[in-house]
Design a protein around this nucleic acid. Sequence first.
RNA 1: GCGGGUGUAGCUCAGUGGUAGAGCGUCACGUUGCCAACGUGAAUGUCGUGGGUUCAAGUCCCAUCACCCGCUCCA
Length: 537
Amino acid sequence: MAAEQTFMDKLTALCKRRGFIYQSSEIYGGIGGFWDYGPLGVELKRNIKNQWWRDMVTNPPRGPDGRDVEMVGVDCAIIMNPKVWEASGHATGFADPMVDCRKCKGRFRLDQVFRIEVRRPGAAEPFAVFSMQGDGTHSALEAATGRATKLSKKHGGGEYALAATSFKDVLAADPRVDVLACPTCDEPGTLTEPRQFNLMFQTYVGALQDASSIAYLRPETAQGIFANFKNVLDTTRVKVPFGIAQIGKSFRNEINPRNYTFRSREFEQMEIEFFCSEASSMEWYEFWRKTRYDWYVNLGLRSEKLRLRDQTREELAHYSKACADIEYLFPFSDEFQELEGVAHRGNFDLTQHAQFSGKDLSYFDDEAWERDKEQYPDPEQARRAKNAPPYRYLPTVVEPSAGADRATLAFLCEAYTEDTAPDEKGVLQTRVVLKFHPQLAPVKVAFFPLVNKEGMPEIAEALYRETRRYMTAFFDDKGAIGRRYRRQDEVGTPYCVTVDGDTLRDGSVTIRERDTLAQVRVKKEGVVAWLRERLGQ
RNA sequence: GCGGGUGUAGCUCAGUGGUAGAGCGUCACGUUGCCAACGUGAAUGUCGUGGGUUCAAGUCCCAUCACCCGCUCCA
């Protein structure tokens, strides 16, 4: 742990020193869970987002059906009608504190779990106590009857009386939660202390600050996509299967933000909701699972620190058929941490929004109907068939949901390398280098005059001005050449171009490669083309 | 949320209740001939913040904020 801690310390120090990441409002003592990207950090993160958008939206891969994936983008408001969060399930459990079970991972509202006491008529002490879930005392008692009868028989039979007290009331009288049993696991001691879960940031819309004007900052970008599903269907010519993508900020009022930018209260997501038929959904799920994993690998997360983990049945949400996490072993933890989740969500979200909004969010498959309608000669039969699957249905959703800040942090961790390079006297010295994939590097190329005379600076600057029309470039004539190379290594610049004496004689420059330190000579007129070819800019 | 630790220059860190420091970095000038050069000079601090004790607080006390570690948590 000590060595890994040192690694994170070095990385965070580098990120601060070279302008990748700053703590938010640092001059006022900072604020927990919020981070700013500096001049180099914003380039890095933007490159990651742009690459994602290019690879997923504007130039998506070929799907399992042999056709190019159809994908459109949206950019939705952060604040939405609060009913959205009722439909999505994010608002439930707000009114009452909750307890979690450490064993079964269940979460229960205190007013919906009851302590059931079974006692003989007139007896002071119950002969059996257990826990039961219910919407109210009545439903809890009803649910408990079967078990109480069995317990009564076991204890010799005879009449018994039931009493149900909600955990809320029990704990009000006696705050010891460890004597209460989890209604699922049925053993005491597995429940956490009750807590208020209010992880959505709350605000007021309009000048009037009362209950009717409460709104929330979105805790995920996905719901904006679902809420616009019908709009996109009606106004573009997409056909299922297709996806809607969005990059944007989300907010969660995390109890305990930690691990640098990994768990922040304000963060940026890159999400796709991919809509397909139920029949093809597992095929699409497998496709996205692999496509998204490969995306990270292709951009440089090559080590064994990246893995694709299928969630176990117990981890899955009730509506989900399958979910895989793309995880990275960050230096700050012994455990893999989630970068992205690829979830098979069934049609849960569209069902919820159709129900809560009262709007029809079904999709009608024209092509299939045109193909099959001859099979329904009877008009009434045809009308019924037309409005049911496989012609009209709520599409199934596969959701690849990635964290842009987490990806940025993973790429930084993976890129950070210490190796050795010879100094002026040929002695090996430690070198810090960020080995970013060239596509992600904040600065693509730096231009140096070997020395500041004989017209070298002018030539180098002219090349710099020409090149920056196409890519982020940097000009540096300060200090010795070796030092300038090292400065660029430290921020991950893949190429450095040096104008030297030979440039004056034959018009060639040296291009030095970041990872290998190898140098090649290129005619100065060909430098831009040489770089654009290798950087795809 | 609980317990422990830390907070001094851009970074890493010294600093016995009595003048605010070092290395690296940054900037200027000179030098420069391909991998962390050298010389000279310079800038940089409400010692996290707010109270308190004291003749005097970076140092002691209290509170608070931020970060780190361990638990917890991650809807």
